Amino acid sequence: MNISKGLIIAVDFDGTIVEDSYPGIGDERIFAFETLKRLQADGHRLILWTYRQGKKLEEAVAYCKANDLEFYAVNKSFPEEDLTEDVSRKIHADLFIDDRNIGGILGWGEIYQMLTNEAPKRPKDKKKKGFFRF
């Protein structure tokens, strides 16, 4: 998957940027901040998309800022979005990076390589199996 410039990428916090220790803040996942900053430098907009709200959200945003990472928007599609109106919590993004994906979260180096097509091709299974075949 070679992504074009200028995509909007929604990124989860707990379990994705940091190890999941909610309501606390876990240890940084290796290469998380380096990769996210590189994606920004490549021209992509990052949205922090997390379950956190209120004080816990402020703590996560401050943690990211202390690691020199600021987001285009936080829990909304764009910075100017007014969340006081009746709006959907679903945001507009081209890609979502989340530890709750099917198959879990990859390493950040692998994520970057996949997005920039720099990763070596994974070998494909020789024999494909159907959904109910083992």
Score class of each variant (00 low, 15 high):
K127Q: 00
Y72C: 02
I105R: 14
K124W: 06
N2H: 06
R100C: 08
K124Q: 13
K129H: 01
V74T: 13
K129D: 00
K56Q: 14
A10V: 04
P120M: 03
Y51P: 00
I47S: 09
G54N: 14
V74W: 12
Y63I: 04
T84M: 05
S21H: 04
T35W: 06
H92P: 00
R52K: 07
Y51T: 09
K56Y: 02
A62Q: 14
I17F: 10
K121V: 09
Y72V: 01
L57A: 08
K55A: 11
W108N: 01
F13P: 11
K55R: 14
V18Q: 12
D82K: 08
L83N: 01
I91G: 09
W49N: 15
D14P: 09
K37N: 12
V61F: 04
G104N: 05
V61S: 01
N101R: 15
I17R: 13
K121T: 03
R45G: 00
F134I: 03
S77M: 03
W49T: 13
G107I: 01
L57C: 08
V74H: 14
K128N: 00
P79F: 15
C64S: 08
F31C: 07
N117W: 07
E58G: 05
H44C: 12
D14C: 11
I97K: 11
V18H: 05
D94A: 14
F96S: 04
P79H: 06
K124F: 04
I25K: 04
K76M: 06
V74M: 10
D98L: 11
E58C: 01
A66M: 01
